[in-house]
Amino acid sequence: MSAVHPAGRTQRRSPATPVRIAARALLGALAILSLLSGIAGGLWRAGIALPDGRAFPWAGQWLLAHAALMICGFFGTVIGIERAVALRHRAAFLAPLASGAGALCLALGQQALGAWLCVVAAACFLAVGVVVVRRQAAPHTFLLLVGALAWAVGSLLFAQGRAGHAVLPWWFAFLVLTIAAERLEMTRLMKRRPGAAAALHAVLALLLLGAAWSGAAPRGGGLAYGAALALLAAWLAVFDVARRTVRTHGLARYMAVCLLGGYAWLGVAGVAWAATALGWPARDVALHALGLGFVVGMVMGHAPVVLPAVARVKLAFGNFFYLAPAALHLSLLLRFAAGAFSQPLHAAGAAGNAATLGFFAATLAGAALAWRWRHGTAGAGKTPR
């Protein structure tokens, strides 16, 4: 969501105070810590130990809590901050604060406390979703609320010590439903074919059914979940505005390229998820085509719009923005295609995934500095509208 009031009115921002600056710094630090520890755990999972993970006292926790650190810790905190900024209510910041604190506990080896803080974060986020729906009852706000509920269910199962095949479908449903809601919000004025909305509702219902079913019957639930992901990819490719805006220029085209690439990876994730349920060795493809190819691809596409609205940082857009998505796709292809036949190539692809995240962060920082250089510090201090 952008920095717009849920009722649709653009809000004037209050001036920054030392307390607000400190709060933003704390939340930002918790999100960055979650990301870095999650990446480290993922690299060690891929067999990369540079530096050697055994030299760090909490390395084992980062490895075991990789998914929780990335989904609840990083994405949960970032999405929670975005939603709190849009809602403009101090209590809404309890959700990202709890998720960031939970990730910190997980990174430090406090598994139980960290897991229950994730439950608290999801519950607070769910309450925020209820407020948003009360302010603006619309299909995309209801979908955001359902996504928040999925995060809460997954976190509760995680706190109860349930296995990954029961937890991960709910956590990923949180991210997928949130992204689908964002796309509905941004394209709500588009005219769609009759039956498009009903088809989307059916696909998302199948996604939730697959998540619920996976805990009791991983095979059947996984097949349903994978089918829902693949069908959602097809729906987005057909009905999202990106297939039109990709023929435009500038930022709109960049966003469309990122979105369409993400939809392709979502389709790959759906097929791989179903294949994993059937016993094929496709789990790495299922999880990371979804988490990196789709979710991170969507982040790259929306960041030039969301970051100025949430963080009051203006960016100078240029063709250099295309480099990070291209690196993401190439490193994923190396990881999945060549990596299927060679462990070193698989590890190289995983290292490329991590490097791409750092490269994209550097791209955003460079774009912010470029804007300041072009417009001067006086222009950079103005509040984005």
Results as ranks from 00 to 15, higher is better:
His66Phe: 07
Thr363Ala: 11
Ala86Met: 10
Ala282Phe: 12
Gly109Val: 00
Val268Phe: 04
Gly215Val: 10
Leu345Ile: 11
Gly100Ser: 02
Arg90Gln: 11
Asp284Asn: 11
Gly279Met: 11
Phe359Arg: 03
Trp116Thr: 01
Ala355Ser: 01
Ala180Pro: 09
Asn353Lys: 01
Ala121Gln: 03
Ala274Gln: 14
Ala324Ile: 06
Gly114Asn: 09
Leu357Val: 13
Ala205Gly: 15
Ala326Tyr: 00
Arg253Ser: 13
Gly60Lys: 00
Val271Phe: 02
Ala316Tyr: 11
Ala242Asp: 07
Cys258Trp: 07
Arg20Tyr: 00
Arg45Met: 03
Leu26His: 08
Lys314Val: 04
Ala348Ser: 06
Ala91Leu: 14
Pro96Cys: 08
Trp373Glu: 15
Gln110Met: 14
Arg134Thr: 12
Gly215Asn: 00
Ala95Thr: 05
Ala354Asp: 00
Gly154Ala: 07
Thr187Tyr: 07
Ile21Gly: 00
Ala324Tyr: 05
Thr363Trp: 10
Ala327Leu: 15
Arg183His: 03
Ala227Cys: 11
Gln160Ser: 11
Leu108Asp: 02
Gly301Met: 03
Ala264Lys: 00
Ser34Thr: 01
Ile39Cys: 08
Arg283His: 05
Leu231His: 09
Arg13Pro: 12
Gly318Trp: 04
Ser37Tyr: 12
Ala361Pro: 02
Val246Lys: 02
Gln136Arg: 15
Leu144Met: 13
His165Glu: 12
Pro281Gly: 00
Ala198Asn: 04
Gly80Met: 08
Tyr225Phe: 15
Leu330Lys: 00
Val313Gly: 08
Ala137Asp: 14
Ala309Gly: 12
Gly226Met: 05
Ala365Tyr: 09
Leu33Ser: 10
Val132Pro: 04
Thr276Ala: 11
